[in-house]
Amino acid sequence: MDTAKRISLEKQATKIRMGIIEGVHSAKSGHPGGSLSITDILTYLYFEKMNIDPKNPRMEGRDRFVLSKGHAAPALYSVLANRGYFSVDELMGLRHTGALLQGHPDMKHIPGVDMSTGSLGQGISAATGMALSAKHFKENYKVYCACGDGEIEEGQVWEAAMFAANKSLNNLIVFIDNNHLQIDGTIEEVNSPMPIDQKFKAFNWNVILINGHDFDEIERAVEEANKSTDKPTAIIAETVKGKGVSFMENQVGWHGSAPNDEQYAIAMKELEEKLASL
């Protein structure tokens, strides 16, 4: 990736992080930690990779994305708003009564959301169904999906993993946001799904390990995944929960709580400084 493109993506990702903080602060609830950890991956997919049209969210043959870790909705919403699916002003209505942006992704009402998710383990099955549909009806689109590392404690994830591999769904690319934290503690403490890479390999997936905050690595992984001829791909992304906001990074307490006014001001100042430095 050339420097100009990378800097452009980093700027975009920083703006998206600001949208996440604004939304969660306005809602006084939500999940900033896991939203900030998946931001760079979503930024790459929506601003660089996916065949989509914000003016025609249900475009035939478009690439699909399923946020299986649906609680990271603030990240998806900020990406969609910044990509032009709806006004960035909507982010301030996150989780508010009667507003567009529900606490978890809602495909029926929110432009650009390809699947309603939020109950963990279910999105990857839906993504698998989309990939199967593409194969059967001879369409060329790709299906991208993002799961949390804690989420893969759900048994349904492995039902989907078994099925996707057995159906040779090479058009399915699943990111595992390996930020190491879930609500009650570290994933190792709670019910360790490690080693994640070996589990997916044992389920006959193509497995790629990356730094989930490095756009070069994200791009190379997606390009490699798109070359898979017979297997679905799991891109296991080493990430930092709360990435980009110093006091949120690697802190389990920021899984599901909103910043107060003072914390909001600090977070926004940090992100503005980051944006100015790029």
Binding site: S125, G129, M130, N166
Partner: peptide
């Protein structure tokens, strides 16, 4: 046009949802 999802009903319903989400 038939797919056996195996003994995995939770995934069966999710896969069905995904197919339907593509307009089929």
């Amino acid at each position: 046009r038939f797919n056996n999802c195996g003994i995995a009903e939770q995934n069966l319903m999710g896969v069905a949802a995904g197919i339907a989400a593509t307009g089929k």
